[in-house]
Simulated assay, not measured.
Amino acid sequence: MPFAPGQGIKELEKLIVQHIPRDFLMACEDACFNGDEKGRMQATSFAAGHRPSAVGQNRHFFTNEAFFEALLAHGANPTPLRGTQVVIGQLGIFNVARVSVAGHKWASAFRRGSTRKLLSQFNVDIEQLYVQSDFFAATNEPVRGTIFIVGVVDGLDEAGNAQLTEVSLALPAPHMKSFLYTCKVSDFLSLYDQPDSVGQVDEAIPKLKNLSKKQTGNDQGNN
């Protein structure tokens, strides 16, 4: 049965805490900020007209490599690093991927690319049980879902280069027109210290059963 409004979000947070380790989220936050810093530093030698593109490309590659290592360290079986393709891992019931967003134009960034669209569709049961709150609708206990680590590029450094300002986690709605849940990683980490937080699962479900590594799409334009 769906949860009552308000209670559903709290239960969804518990579900995320159960399946996504605190240390992994901390590693993702570090990966995003370190990748951003390296990307901007490596781009300083380019001409001014090339520098914005160089910053974005470098940020993407440095962040993807660190994100891949974080997934690997937590047994998330990441898909291979390959150019601008989306890197995907799995922790518990959740597919985990990342995306960078220019400004706060989240919806448009998520709708780019077939892989993100496919991943978002796994949130159908989560939407119906925790967010939709339709007591007359049939619901299933979620056995699969998708979380994105979102790097928000909404600032400028001293050289005028686009700079990362925050890292959040987000569960997009299946239709990708809105979000079931968003929260800054720094704020979400406090939930692991709450007395009623549930213990994390010991065993993960089979990795990416319905999404083969050959299906991962292109992440070009979301550096």
Results as ranks from 00 to 15, higher is better:
residue 51 R to L: 01
residue 67 F to I: 13
residue 57 Q to F: 15
residue 88 I to E: 04
residue 88 I to F: 12
residue 75 G to V: 03
residue 55 V to M: 01
residue 67 F to Q: 10
residue 85 Q to W: 00
residue 57 Q to V: 15
residue 82 R to I: 04
residue 78 P to I: 12
residue 81 L to C: 08
residue 74 H to K: 07
residue 88 I to T: 09
residue 84 T to C: 11
residue 89 G to Y: 11
residue 56 G to A: 07
residue 83 G to N: 05
residue 78 P to F: 07
residue 89 G to S: 04
residue 67 F to K: 13
residue 81 L to K: 10
residue 89 G to M: 06
residue 62 F to C: 09
residue 82 R to A: 04
residue 84 T to E: 11
residue 90 Q to T: 01
residue 72 L to Q: 12
residue 89 G to T: 11
residue 63 T to F: 02
residue 70 A to K: 13
residue 60 H to C: 11
residue 61 F to L: 06
residue 69 E to L: 13
residue 52 P to G: 00
residue 51 R to K: 06
residue 54 A to Q: 08
residue 75 G to W: 14
residue 70 A to W: 09
residue 82 R to D: 06
residue 64 N to Y: 12
residue 85 Q to A: 09
residue 66 A to I: 07
residue 61 F to Q: 11
residue 59 R to E: 07
residue 55 V to R: 00
residue 64 N to C: 09
residue 76 A to I: 13
residue 65 E to A: 05
residue 66 A to N: 13
residue 79 T to P: 07
residue 60 H to L: 09
residue 80 P to K: 06
residue 90 Q to Y: 00
residue 56 G to M: 08
residue 90 Q to G: 02
residue 66 A to D: 11
residue 54 A to V: 03
residue 83 G to K: 09
residue 89 G to N: 08
residue 62 F to V: 03
residue 73 A to C: 08
residue 62 F to P: 07
residue 74 H to A: 07
residue 58 N to M: 08
residue 54 A to S: 15
residue 79 T to V: 12
residue 57 Q to W: 14
residue 51 R to I: 05
residue 66 A to C: 02
residue 71 L to Y: 13
residue 61 F to K: 10
residue 59 R to M: 12
residue 52 P to Y: 01
residue 64 N to W: 04
residue 81 L to E: 05
residue 80 P to C: 05
residue 53 S to G: 10
residue 81 L to F: 03
residue 85 Q to K: 14
residue 53 S to H: 12
residue 79 T to F: 12
residue 89 G to W: 14
residue 61 F to R: 09
residue 62 F to Y: 14
residue 68 F to P: 06
residue 66 A to W: 04
residue 62 F to K: 02
residue 51 R to G: 03
residue 85 Q to F: 10
residue 60 H to W: 15
residue 90 Q to F: 06
residue 57 Q to P: 10
residue 61 F to A: 03
residue 68 F to W: 15
residue 61 F to Y: 11
residue 90 Q to V: 02
residue 70 A to I: 10
residue 83 G to L: 01
residue 65 E to V: 10
residue 62 F to N: 08
residue 81 L to M: 09
residue 87 V to E: 03
residue 59 R to Y: 01
residue 72 L to Y: 14
residue 87 V to K: 02
residue 64 N to T: 12
residue 72 L to T: 07
residue 56 G to Q: 00
residue 58 N to T: 04
